[in-house]
Write a protein that binds this DNA or RNA. Sequence first.
DNA 1: GTATACATGTAAACGGTTACATGATTCT
DNA 2: AGAATCATGTAACCGTTTACATGTATAC
Lengths: 181, 181
Amino acid sequence: MALEHAILVSLLEKPGSGYELASRFDRSIGRFWTATHQQIYRVLKRMEADGWITAEEVAQEGRPDKRVYSAAAPGRDALTAWLRAPVEPETVRHELAVRIRGAAFDPAGTAGLAAEVERHRAAHAALLARYLAGERRDFPDPDVLDAAQALQHVVLRGGIEYERMTVAWLDDVLATLRRLG
Amino acid sequence: MALEHAILVSLLEKPGSGYELASRFDRSIGRFWTATHQQIYRVLKRMEADGWITAEEVAQEGRPDKRVYSAAAPGRDALTAWLRAPVEPETVRHELAVRIRGAAFDPAGTAGLAAEVERHRAAHAALLARYLAGERRDFPDPDVLDAAQALQHVVLRGGIEYERMTVAWLDDVLATLRRLG
DNA sequence: GTATACATGTAAACGGTTACATGATTCT
DNA sequence: AGAATCATGTAACCGTTTACATGTATAC
């Protein structure tokens, strides 16, 4: 379980409301950890009750008020304790792979699967393009970064390489399906 | 939710007991879908109650008896229906990425993280070696495969490329940490 | 004697997903 | 008038994880 910790990292990088966190999880943090606003609000409450974060009510004009959260000392301590505890390499869940192996048992053949694979390929190619655009925008000069930025950049490079590899693999899958069909 | 479907694919490839399925999920299927024996036994019961699979009691000598399951017609139908329903590209959960970005806020610096990253790198390199050995063993002649084998092979190639990419990225992470440290 | 492989389960706790709910403001 | 953005929640359900539980046979 790491949603707490992902939120702590995000709040340490920049304080924000539940709503703002939800939109960050839809963009930058969401690259490697997804969360919906329902989850986020629930966890924020618990973290505030535990003293990991503090909230400040901010009145706004023309918009609803919001609660801006910041990481507190106990939260920072919890994060560093978690950072030092070793974790096992992730367990992968790759539904498309299940479908590809399952396609061998579909009496209708592999045509439907090919269309589905094309869809995934397009989605991953679009994400790759977005990551590359984000890299050009946020890291135009990769040699002059502070520690936090250098670490953000290397994580982004991981996302880029993952998408690149996935697009290439899906091309391999499509070529294999074509050979079979 | 795809554990049912992963089990169906596995049983279609070859009938087996809950125990045998659990060990397959530790090896081949587990590359892209993990499951523990507790989950598997529970889902097998439900699938049998739903008529998706049938069980046959097999008495053994020198070993406990076992229940060998096979996919039934309704299960095959459920699988093909699922194969045709489009799914969204996966949501990624990458705990190590959270830790890497979090390391910027660890007052003790990035030394502990580097050791952790080394551990992950070794695990992924070992997995890559296992996949490559499996490929040489199971697909020595990739040009003469039937459909099911060709699909198994392309999924395995996905695993190989994923591990290759991950090892290279972790090297990038280590180089970045060294530059900071 | 100890560890490993074979074989199958129950139960509690936890986390994530989905559906439902409310209400203001701004833009087209 | 309708859609999108900002802003925050509740409740039910479902799946996964972890801990507990039992017993035989083989290999070292």
